[in-house]
Computed example of a mutant assay.
Amino acid sequence: MKLTDIESVEPGQTLGKTIFSENGTVLLSAGVHLTVFMISTLKRLGVTMVYLSDPSAPDIQIDEVLSEETKQMVVQQMSSTFEALRSGKPFNTRAISMTVDQLMDDVLKNQNVLVQLSDIRTEDNAMFLHAMNVCMMATMVGLNMGLNMIQLKELAIGSMLHDIGKVGVSRETEEEGRAHHAWRGFDLLKLKREYSLLISHVAFQHHESVDGSGKPRGLSGDEIHLYAKITAVADRYDNMVNGINEEGRRLPPHEAIERLHALSGSVLERDVLVEFLRIVSVYPNGISVRLSNRQTGVVVGQHRGLPGRPIVRVIEKDGEDAVEAREIDLAQHPTTFIEAVLN
């Protein structure tokens, strides 16, 4: 598979990953041959990038932490939850708990898989996929940091609902300082007797900074709960790689990680960031790269513990016409490194 800008997609090409609608149903299935109408519809829905099957490398796959079934369940549940809030109705805490249980099961089974955020977003499903990704990554970090199962469940629910206060609040209202979504999220969640108060503090504190420069209360250091510190890193990373940043453009993972490094110890907790960097793929499968030896290729494999040293498949000429594919494992070639991402 290869990640491709929607403007470069042509009719007849094959979709590499399923795209979900806002209510969790399948919008387009992997394997479908794209038509002019389909491409036009994806553009209208706000899709900017898609994964396409690559005939030259049909074996390149993206290992997923979450199953398609779990993803669909999460998107459907978040859609139902947000719709209930917009209607002024109580949301189903038990259903959310069951959804989180399934997500946690997937994380525990696939905890050695590096995170590659590959789900395609539309304007309608973006908030739900964001909640899912932040929950998944936060749970993986919490697991690495030694949280027990009760703590992991609290962290998972809190991180999945961290932006619940955004529902029904306009961006203009927030910018004017009248109703920061962290306050509203806290007010909504603290009333849920089924939930620990710590869950509501994830929504309350995930925009605080360890140096005291964050919002809404300017907390610092140990005043910020560990759950919120973990969620803050996952939230910021997912926003960066999906275009929710100052430039309004998608950052490739390696660039987003560089920016996280720059925030270490000031905005983000250093110890949390160290653990976060162990779970994410710096160079995800399917992206094209140029190596320091001037060869170009495609990332085809990952190493747990060495996210910046993937396996790269390069194409070499053998004679005038013949070509040969060769894989370079950067973990075994310490003097060769990735010089640039070409996608």
Rank of each mutant, 00 (worst) to 15 (best):
K71V: 10
S56A: 14
P58H: 00
D59F: 01
E64T: 03
Q72Y: 01
L42R: 11
I62P: 13
L42E: 12
Q72G: 03
P58K: 00
F37R: 15
M49Q: 14
L52Q: 09
K43A: 06
I39R: 07
Y51Q: 04
K43R: 14
M49E: 12
I39Y: 05
D59N: 10
M73S: 02
Y51E: 05
F37E: 15
R44F: 02
R44Q: 07
L52K: 02
K71S: 00
L66D: 01
L42A: 13
I60T: 15
Q61R: 07
I60C: 03
Q72A: 10
T70A: 01
Y51H: 15
Q61G: 10
D54R: 03
E68I: 01
I39H: 10
Q61S: 07
I60S: 06
T70C: 07
M73N: 11
R44L: 05
G46F: 04
M49L: 09
Y51M: 06
G46I: 10
A57F: 12
V50Y: 10
R44N: 01
K43H: 08
K43Q: 10
I39N: 12
F37S: 15
I62W: 11
D59W: 05
Q72F: 06
P58E: 04
Q72I: 05
S56K: 12
P58C: 06
D59Q: 11
S53I: 11
P58M: 01
L42S: 13
P58Q: 02
E68R: 13
E64P: 02
M73Y: 05
P58I: 00
M38D: 15
T70S: 04
F37Q: 15
D59I: 08
T41S: 15
V50P: 01
S56F: 06
M49W: 12
M49I: 10
Q61M: 08
S40D: 14
Q61W: 10
F37G: 14
T70K: 00
I62L: 11
T70L: 00
Y51F: 15
E68M: 09
Y51S: 04
E64Y: 04
D63M: 11
Q72N: 00
S67V: 06
K43Y: 04
S53P: 05
L42F: 11
A57K: 08
I39D: 11
S56Q: 13
T41D: 15
E64L: 05
I39K: 13
R44C: 00
L42W: 06
T48G: 07
K71F: 05
L45H: 03
S53F: 02
L52S: 09
T70F: 01
S67C: 04
M73C: 02
A57T: 09
K43E: 10
S67E: 07
S67G: 03
D54N: 13
E68C: 06
Q72P: 00
K43N: 02
S53W: 04
V65M: 03
S53G: 05
V50E: 11
M38S: 15
I60G: 08
T48Q: 12
Q61K: 07
L52Y: 08
E64F: 04
M49V: 08
K43W: 04
K71H: 04
P55T: 01
K43I: 10
Q72W: 02
D59S: 05
E69R: 08
E68D: 11
E69P: 00
G46T: 10
T41A: 14
S40A: 14
V47N: 05
V50Q: 07
K43G: 06
M38L: 15
A57Q: 13
E68G: 01
V47D: 05
L52F: 07
I62R: 12
D54E: 12
S56T: 07
S53A: 12
P55L: 07
